[in-house]
Simulated assay, not measured.
Amino acid sequence: MTTTYRLLAVDDEPDIQRTNKKYLESRGYRVDTAACASEALELLHDNSYDCILLDVLLPDLSGFELCAAVRALTSAPILFLSCMDDEGNKVEGLMAGGDDYITKPYSLKELAARVYAQLRRNAMKGFSIDHSQQILTVNGRAILLAQKEFDLFLYLLGNPGRVVTAGELYQEVWHSGKPDAANTVAVHITRLRHKLDGALGSIETVRGEGYRFLPGADVWGGVRR
């Protein structure tokens, strides 16, 4: 990255907080932390952040309540990190003003990819993501994706220009080790390419290695890895 992005991570579990902070800082981010909603709001009044990570179960306010308060202060993307994996919780988080929702346990690679995807999205022109409906909008054109196609796109979005193997994609998107990983990924890549039709760039097949997403220069803004 050529710019140091500043993140705010709000979680009352010290071990999770330390692990996330250490990993994200190793990826070049500056990370401030808070253990409750009141600490988070104090930091938000005094500082500007590029992305905010919110746990849902906090000691003073719920993450959903905090999200509504945060939205009064900043339009920075908000990423929920929660052990609550019910669909209703996810919808509530997105309706409260969140931009994405990850359920615990998650891999640190996925966390970094989702954070980076939010930063990239903020730099895009004519592009938006509706997480609740799995719809991408590109210059007024709506692209509806199936759930796994959507999850696959988000992972590629968070790893632009990097070759990712079929095994990595299967592990991070399907969270499984089934032996047909390569074929399943290939089928979904083909469907995703067809639906995107070059609208956001290209998904290259790197023979013998995997896949690489190359964003289109006419859609993306100035954020660089």
Rank of each mutant, 00 (worst) to 15 (best):
E149W: 00
A182Q: 15
H194P: 01
S48W: 10
S62N: 13
E168W: 08
T74K: 07
G97Y: 06
R120E: 10
V70D: 02
G177R: 09
C83S: 13
R114S: 01
A217R: 09
D60H: 07
V185E: 03
E209G: 01
I78H: 00
H175Q: 14
N89E: 10
C83R: 14
F150C: 02
Y155L: 11
A186K: 15
M95K: 14
A37I: 06
D60M: 06
I78Q: 00
L144I: 06
D180A: 13
A96D: 05
A76M: 02
T205Y: 03
G201N: 09
E204Y: 03
T165V: 06
R120M: 12
A113C: 14
T4F: 02
L24T: 05
H194Y: 13
E209Q: 14
R120N: 07
D151W: 02
M1W: 06
A186W: 01
L73S: 09
D12R: 10
T74H: 05
T205H: 07
L61C: 04
L145E: 05
A35H: 11
L73I: 08
Y29M: 11
R114G: 00
Q134M: 14
L156M: 06
N183M: 13
T33D: 07
D130E: 13
Y49D: 00
Q118C: 04
Q171I: 10
T103M: 09
Q134V: 01
I129H: 03
A112S: 13
D218V: 14
D100R: 08
G198F: 07
A76E: 04
S107L: 09
T3Y: 12
S48Y: 03
L156F: 15
Q17G: 05
D32Y: 11
H194R: 14
P179T: 14
K90H: 05
L7P: 04
T184P: 03
V56E: 12
R6K: 15
R212V: 02
V115A: 09
V185L: 07
L169F: 00
V163D: 06
G98S: 09
Y23Q: 10
K125N: 12
F80R: 01
E110K: 15
R162S: 07
T165D: 11
L57E: 11
R27H: 12
R162L: 15
H175A: 11
I129W: 12
S38I: 09
A112V: 04
I52F: 10
S176Y: 08
Q134Y: 13
R191N: 10
A112K: 03
V173A: 08
R6S: 08
K148M: 13
P59V: 11
L24F: 11
C67E: 03
E204W: 05
D60Q: 06
L136Q: 03
L94N: 07
G158M: 07
L152H: 03
D180S: 12
G126P: 01
S82G: 07
R224T: 15
D100L: 05
E209S: 10
A72I: 03
H131M: 11
C83V: 15
Q147P: 05
L108W: 09
S176K: 15
A72L: 09
L81A: 01
Y101D: 06
A112N: 12
L108K: 03
S75I: 04
D15R: 14
K148W: 04
A40I: 08
V56N: 13
